[in-house]
């Protein structure tokens, strides 16, 4: 049976038995090319669900909106890591979410009304094609997961550039930022009740939509996600001015992985290294 049939059948069953209030999945967008999130509350709506390589949205960002309800969510492997991350950070109760995991073929680079067969760069480096946590799995897991080598070729390429080149690269990108916060709003890990950038007292970042403030905003946000980013790429996908935000997130992810052998959200129990402190740990860096 096709993955989408299994998703629809499971969604119908969950709604009919009232095991969940709604099922969050994907439907076709109005351009008839891309996908968009669908919240199905009635069994009659499940026929609208789709799943294909255009379903790039990380739907777990909606789970906190439905915190007090029991819902089901369609989760790709990277999305499933967000669920672990949220449970780990006490933002979500495992029993309140039914995870319809999907084996992921990788997402393509669709734009509005612009179909594409081109795999998103991030998906080319992906190490999880099967969700790390699920209640039900749609699709056939691959016999073994690929091990891209090196795991962060994009970051390595950047690291090879000179400081001046990197400076110029990021200045040019941040200058375009319009501070629409689509990156933050699409991110499952960006859930602060009051984001540092919205805080007025103390004022961490001024309200100007201008190079200095834009750089502050984007870099501090990346640091907030260090060791927490689950590599879904939603921030970059939604950025209207094409800022390669995942390069920042993956640079920090790479550092965390190399220092602590940790990748966020692989399980719900391991405390992320940057939010834990062990007394016996000493700074070995030569400062």
């Amino acid at each position: 049976m096709e993955a989408i049939e299994r998703i629809r059948d499971k969604a119908r069953e969950l709604l009919e038995s009232q095991a969940v209030e709604c099922v969050i999945g994907y439907e076709r967008a109005t351009d008839n090319v891309g996908a968009r999130p669908l919240f199905a509350y009635e069994p009659g709506e499940v026929a609208r669900f789709i799943f294909d390589q255009t379903c790039h949205h990380n739907l777990t960002r909606y789970l906190r909106d439905k915190k007090d309800r029991t819902v089901a969510v369609v989760a790709k492997p990277c999305d499933s890591r967000a669920i672990n991350m949220l449970i780990n950070e006490k933002q979500l109760e495992r029993e309140r979410v039914f995870i319809i995991g999907v084996v992921c073929p990788g997402m393509v680079e669709v734009g509005w009304s612009r179909p594409s067969q081109e795999l998103q760069p991030l998906c080319r480096y992906c190490r999880q094609h099967t969700p790390v946590v699920y209640d039900f799995l749609a699709g056939e897991p691959p016999a073994e997961e690929p091990e891209p080598s090196p795991p962060y070729p994009d970051v390595a390429e950047m690291e090879g550039r000179s400081v001046a080149e990197r400076r110029a690269f990021w200045s040019q990108h941040f200058e375009r930022c319009i501070r629409c916060y689509a990156c933050r709003q699409a991110c499952p890990g960006c859930y602060c009740t009051e984001c540092f950038v919205d805080r007025l007292d103390p004022l961490w970042v001024g309200i100007r939509i201008a190079p200095g403030e834009n750089e502050m905003w984007n870099t501090i946000r990346a640091y907030h996600l260090a060791g927490r980013c689950i590599d879904c790429g939603s921030c970059q996908q939604v950025c209207p001015v094409n800022i390669p935000l995942m390069l920042l997130n993956r640079k920090l992810g790479k550092e965390v992985e190399e220092l602590f052998d940790f990748q966020a959200g692989l399980d719900a129990e391991t405390l992320p290294p940057l939010v834990t402190f062990k007394k016996e740990e000493k700074l070995e860096a030569d400062l």
């Binding site: 999130p37 919240f39 319009i178 629409c180 689509a182 933050r184 709003q185």
Partner: peptide
């Protein structure tokens, strides 16, 4: 309310 389920409340629409 149903439409807003999907909205992620960024400022993008207003800024473009």
């Amino acid at each position: 309310a149903r439409l807003a389920d999907r909205c992620i409340h960024c400022n993008l629409c207003a800024y473009v």
